[in-house]
Amino acid sequence: MHTRWLMPGILLCVFVLSLIIHRFELLDSYLQLIVMYIGINIILTLSLNLINGYMGEFSVGHAGFMAVGAYIASFLTVKVIPAHLAAWLFPVAVIAGGMGAALVGLVVALPSFKTRGDYLAIVTLAFVMIVKSVIENIDALGGPRGFLGMEKLATLPWVFFWVILSLWIIRNLVYSNFGRGVLSIREDEVAGDLMSVNTRQVKVLAFTVSSFFAGIAGALFAHLLQFINPRSFDIIKSTDILIMVYLGGIGSIAGSILGATVYTVLLEILRPLGIWRMVLIPLILVLLMLFRPKGIMGLREFPWFVPLRDRLAGRLPRNKRGSS
């Protein structure tokens, strides 16, 4: 029985710790930055994993959703919300960014009803390019020069809070009726449809949740970097997130955390290599695809992330449980 409260207890402690670290500057600011990057990348990786890993579609649109979230939130905190209220209303701006991205995600989901596989990749790719060129053509958003003036509102406690929220919500989604619908689309969409899964509903929900959190991550990213421009959200950004998903493992929460952490840290460690770092990283990705195509934790889950009911449902040992 006490295990039920173990997880929330630990999380609360860590949250308090993050508040203390933030308040008293206990951690070197560079390290804090890295930790926050990891957090933002976890949100991005897990939310993309919902589409690419759990649902088995191939979206490369995450950079676009991030951009929508980042620009909406930044516009709000810089141009709309009075400066003295910005710190207080920051969550509102972040949520607005997420909602904006979710709305756009809904529109992008529509073509995915009809077309399969490669075509979603093309549609989302076109979407990233369109978002970029729309922003470049809006002067109020700074056009190609970028947008600045944000205060550094994304702090360690906030990032931690959003990471936990996204993990919790996406876990809940995965271990629900809709989540099983998502998995059935990956396994065999036609069979899923014939087993009463309303595939449209499932896709709409998955895309909305996924793009919502990408927007949240974008909003946090903007208020951590304090400067964004359209090039921060180009196809390279999407590729980064893809690498984290397929490095950590498809269809896995633990894998998403692992992928985001390993990749972010690896990039920092390899920084002295300069440009050769960017030569090495794609090479790692290719080798990964050749030798472990589902990623480190592909289709497997760490038991902590599995709700109790699903964990105890069967009689075989837990480690035999697959993606669900």
């Binding site: 088995g56 191939f58 960017m278 794609p282 990705l285 290719v286």
Partner: peptide, 21 residues
């Protein structure tokens, strides 16, 4: 098929960055 697509993206990035280096 997704594995092949990602590999291709990786190869592309490799070519770009190797040439840049």
């Amino acid at each position: 098929r997704v594995s092949a697509i990602i590999t291709a993206l990786g190869v592309g990035l490799f070519l770009e960055n190797f040439t840049l280096a």
